[in-house]
Amino acid sequence: MASTADNAKAEEGAGEGVRRRDWIHIAAVSTAGVGGASVLFPLVSQMAPTADVLAASTTDVDVSAIEPGQSIKGVFRDQPLFVKRMTADEIAEMKATDAGSLRDAETLEDRLGEGNEDILVQLGVCTHLGCVPLGAGEGEDKGEFNGYFCPCHGSHYDAAGRIRKGPAPTNLVVPDFAFTTDTTIRVG
């Protein structure tokens, strides 16, 4: 008789309304859950940039051959990089602009960085939706502010790459860069 009662109790324990020893089921299922979730980690992180992409994230540019008013295009993290030596006129005009009145308030000095007189380094990526603005190449449309013009949606940037008109929210991005020699900059 006693054994039958035990039996009934055990039956109950194993059925749906688990009461007795249910901690072990919870522990087992949650451990399996943790295991399953940790499998997601490599599956997700494999989509992050690979080691060779990360390693190629700095770019050296020789600026010695750039004449005033001229730009060269490089590649930085798979995106176009504009490096321009500004003319004296451009510098004077840009310094005269009241930065406070702009959509994205930045002075020319903010954009050039300390100890840099005339080398403007910026990503050639319109801050609206990522097209490459015109204006860095010879004879390209420089837009209404004599700087850069994005043909996709009509954003106009001035000679310092600051947004003046059109849908772009911010100025062209100035990446981190430093002079490694007098004539070479390292971007990134």
Partner: peptide
């Protein structure tokens, strides 16, 4: 080899 060396956890996959 790219998967084995450069991809995150590529060797494991």
């Amino acid at each position: 080899e790219h998967i084995m060396r450069n991809v995150n956890y590529g060797w494991l996959l």
